[in-house]
């Protein structure tokens, strides 16, 4: 009798134990690429995947940062030419393609103007019209000559991959996640988010888009899996000039001045861990912000198969594309008027 009860108990317990093995969640916070990054992984080998992701991000920063003297980008800017490795060359190819697609609203050759305004430094300043006009002719992808792994820049032209480096990093993390045994996870790389699989509760990830007008509040929430969300907005980083004008950090390649947009923020959503969707989302979000509402909506209509988006306008509307209809939660009491866009 006792023997059998023991056996039963052991059998039942071992059954429940093998069935359990609650999914392991690991988190990792890192400071890289001039921003705060948070990585979360759920499932087998979570810690290992996060370590490799972190290493990958640091390696990328060493290659792509404009301010690290030994980086590929810094050497190219200093010497006017360079031989790149395949990864960096591919990123440059994509940057050129996105510039073309967005009619120059995204442009990596904006670097001389970024430097002039001191946007990313601790001491930004408002340059004179003459200073800006002198540098504007250097902006344009026609100054970048890429042939295989060889790249050269026209005299005075420099490049800044800051607009897509984090998107590219999120692509690399997405690839590591996709090749792993993780059941879920996300990478939040300063305005660039990639969500993989499902949460430990088996649900799609809830990605909240920051309310540009109110810290700690959200404009909306998206339920996503296997997707990139990249938000660009003037509210993220800006400075106030001596006359009280607020200058934000995204420079319009057409004018050389910080973009004056009728949008407060643009979030671009792309899908799938392959094909550089994170880089695309990063480039598009910057470009659409510079374009403004009307041109952004036109651009989406022409490329509606490629991405979804959420626009927060300065006059208090939140516009979203119909592809998000089933995963879009409005924020109650946010004061925004929510409008789905017509295809």
């Amino acid at each position: 009798m006792k023997r059998w009860i023991c056996l039963l108990l052991a059998a039942v317990l071992s059954l429940s134990l093998t069935a359990c093995g609650a999914p392991k969640t690991e988190t990792l916070d890192i400071f890289a690429m001039d921003t705060y990054m948070s990585l979360v992984a759920v499932g087998d080998g979570a810690f290992d995947v996060l370590q490799r992701s972190s290493n990958e991000i640091n390696t990328l920063e060493q290659k792509l940062s404009r301010t690290i003297e030994t980086s590929d980008v810094a050497r190219l800017n200093a010497n006017g030419s360079a031989v790149l490795d395949e990864g960096t060359a591919e990123l440059l190819r994509r940057a050129l393609r996105y510039s073309e697609e967005t009619g120059g609203a995204f442009d990596m050759t904006i670097a001389p103007l970024v430097e002039l305004w001191g946007i990313t430094t601790e001491h930004p300043r408002v340059p004179t019209r003459e200073e800006i006009d002198a540098l504007l002719p250097l902006v344009g992808t026609e100054h970048v000559h890429l042939d295989g792994l060889n790249v050269s820049l026209d005299e005075g032209c420099t490049i800044d991959l800051g607009g897509i480096a984090k998107g590219y990093a999120s692509d690399c993390v997405a690839a590591l996640f996709a090749a792993s045994d993780l059941t879920g996870g996300f990478a939040s790389l300063g305005g660039n988010v990639y969500v993989h699989g499902v949460t430990a509760d088996g649900q799609p990830w809830k990605v909240a888009i920051q309310d540009p007008q109110k810290t700690g509040a959200y404009a909306c929430t998206l339920h996503l899996s296997g997707a990139f969300v990249v938000t660009s907005g003037g509210y993220q980083r800006n400075f106030t000039g001596p006359d009280g004008t607020v200058y934000q950090h995204i420079i319009d390649p057409a004018t050389g001045y910080p973009a004056v947009s009728d949008l407060l923020s643009v979030s671009v959503i792309t899908y799938g861990a392959a094909d550089g969707q994170g880089t695309r989302a990063d480039a598009y979000s910057t470009a659409l912000y510079v374009m403004g509402e009307e041109a952004a909506v036109d651009f989406w209509r022409q490329n509606s198969a490629a991405f979804d988006m959420v626009l927060v306008t300065a006059d208090g509307r939140v516009l979203y594309t119909p592809g998000l209809k089933d995963c879009f939660d409005e924020t109650e009491g946010s004061g925004y008027v929510y409008q789905p866009l017509a295809a």
Binding site: A19, C20, G21, A22, P23, T183, V198, A200, D201, G202
Partner: peptide
Amino acid sequence: IITLGNTMVL
């Protein structure tokens, strides 16, 4: 658990 792939149902 096998079908749903997670242990929340426990």
